[in-house]
Amino acid sequence: MSVRGIRGAITVEVNEEQPILQATVELLNGIVKENGIVPDDICSVFVTVTGDLDATFPARAIRQMGGWELVPLMCALEVPVKGSLEKCIRLMVLVNTDKTQRQIEHVYYGGAQALRPDLTKS
């Protein structure tokens, strides 16, 4: 068994608490579904947001999901590169799995599909 990183990102339209929390849940649920994982498989989740999203901590949404109470979570600001994607939430989910790197399904929603078009499903 190996520890693998699963990437995901999603954009929100506004810097408001509920859209940020809802987008975080949508993204994490997509990662879980695409990779067939459960909270007990998760080592940790690293969450970043762009500087224009400061209405809430996205990790709050994850902590309220059933079974995720004990998963270590960490929030941080994304590097503020000029011209980069705005209003974006990114997740790095570290998971114990027998899957190979090629079998991991990374998830990109909304405007975040532009970050990794090579990994985005149509």
Rank of each mutant, 00 (worst) to 15 (best):
I20S: 07
I20D: 12
I20W: 11
L21H: 02
L21I: 13
L21F: 06
Q22M: 08
Q22R: 13
A23L: 09
A23G: 14
A23Q: 09
T24P: 01
T24Y: 06
T24C: 05
T24G: 02
V25L: 04
V25E: 14
V25C: 01
V25Y: 00
V25F: 05
V25D: 11
E26A: 13
E26V: 03
L27Q: 09
L27G: 07
L28V: 15
L28I: 15
L28H: 11
L28N: 04
L28T: 15
L28G: 10
N29E: 15
N29P: 06
N29K: 13
N29W: 02
N29H: 14
N29Y: 11
N29L: 14
G30S: 10
G30I: 11
G30M: 12
G30L: 10
G30W: 03
I31M: 12
I31D: 07
V32R: 08
V32L: 06
V32C: 04
V32E: 11
V32D: 02
K33I: 00
K33C: 03
K33L: 04
K33F: 05
K33R: 14
E34Q: 13
E34L: 06
E34D: 13
N35K: 10
N35I: 09
N35D: 11
N35P: 08
G36F: 03
G36R: 12
I37K: 08
I37M: 10
V38N: 07
V38W: 03
P39V: 01
P39N: 06
P39L: 08
P39R: 12
D40S: 10
D40P: 00
D41S: 03
D41A: 01
D41W: 00
I42T: 03
I42S: 06
I42H: 02
I42R: 10
C43Y: 12
C43P: 02
C43L: 12
S44G: 08
S44C: 13
S44F: 01
V45A: 02
F46I: 08
V47E: 00
V47C: 01
V47G: 00
T48R: 14
T48A: 11
V49Y: 02
T50K: 04
G51A: 06
G51T: 00
G51Y: 06
G51Q: 06
D52M: 10
D52T: 02
D52C: 09
D52H: 08
D52I: 03
L53M: 08
L53H: 01
D54N: 13
A55V: 04
A55W: 03
A55C: 05
A55E: 06
A55K: 09
A55G: 05
T56W: 07
T56F: 04
T56H: 05
T56P: 10
T56Y: 06
F57K: 02
F57V: 00
F57C: 06
P58F: 05
P58I: 02
P58E: 08
A59F: 01
A59L: 00
A59K: 07
A59N: 07
A59V: 03
R60F: 11
R60N: 15
R60A: 10
A61M: 03
A61I: 12
A61L: 09
A61S: 12
I62K: 02
I62V: 10
R63H: 07
R63C: 09
R63G: 11
Q64L: 14
M65S: 08
M65V: 00
M65I: 06
G66C: 04
G66E: 09
G67M: 05
W68M: 14
W68Q: 12
W68H: 12
E69A: 14
E69N: 15
E69P: 09
E69S: 14
E69Q: 15
L70D: 15
L70S: 12
